[in-house]
Amino acid sequence: MIKNLNYILILATIVILGAVGIAFIFGTTFSWVMSETDGLWRQTALYQDYVNVMNLTVGPMVILLVIVLGLCIPKRLFSGARLLQLMGSLTAMTLVLSLSLGIRLGISALLTVAMFMQMVVIVMTLVGSKKLVFEVTGFYIQIGSALLHMGLILFLFDLVLIGDALAQRTLHLNIFWVSTLFIGVGMVFTFYSDELARLFSRGQASA
C-alpha cells in the first residue's frame, strides 16, 4: 500500500506544481502585457489587483502543496489503517482550524504537527531505527529525505506564520537560514546518497 500511496502523493505533487507553474506563466504574461500598455502600472491600483488575483490563484495551490507535504510526513512513522486514520485526522484538523480560525492558523497547526513528527523521524533515522517506513533503503537517502522535508516545513512555517514584518525580521531570517541549511544538506544527501555511502562506507543506498 505504501508504494501506491507514495505514487499518489508524488502524482498530486506534480499536478499541483504544474498548476502553480501555469499560474506563474499567466502572471508573467499579464505583467508583460500591462507593462507594454502602461509603463508605470506597478504604481497604480491595478498592480494591487493583480497581486490579489495571483494570491487567490496561487494561495490555494500552495495550501494544497503544504497539505500534501504534511501528509508525506506521517507515512514514515505509520502504515496501513493507522496511517490513513492519521492522515484523515490531520486533514480534518487543518480544515476545521482553517474554517474557524483562519487559513493561516490552520496551515500553521498542520506544519507544527508535521515538524514534530519530522523531528522524531530525523532522530529515529540517526539512531538507525528499523521501525521507520521508507520506500528507499540506505542511511544517506533516508536522512537526506528527512532533512529536506524538515527544511521545507521550516521554510513554509517561517513564511506562513512569522512572515517578514520588520519587528520579527531577525527571527524570520534566522529560521530561513536554518531551513536553507536543511534543504541544501538534505538535497545533497538525497541526490548523492550512493556516492556518499561509497565514500563513508555506511549503508547501501538504492532508490
Binding site: I10, T13, I14, L17, G18, V20, G21, F24, I25, G27, T28, S31, W32, S35, Y50, V51, M54
Partner: peptide, 21 residues
C-alpha cells in the same frame, strides 16, 4: 509576483516536478 520572479519560480517548479516524476 514580479515577472522575472514568476518565471524563475515556474522554472523551479518544472524541475521540481521533473525530479519527482
Amino acid at each position: 509576483y514580479d515577472p522575472k520572479i514568476n518565471i524563475t519560480l515556474m522554472m523551479w517548479v518544472a524541475y521540481s516536478a521533473y525530479l519527482h516524476a
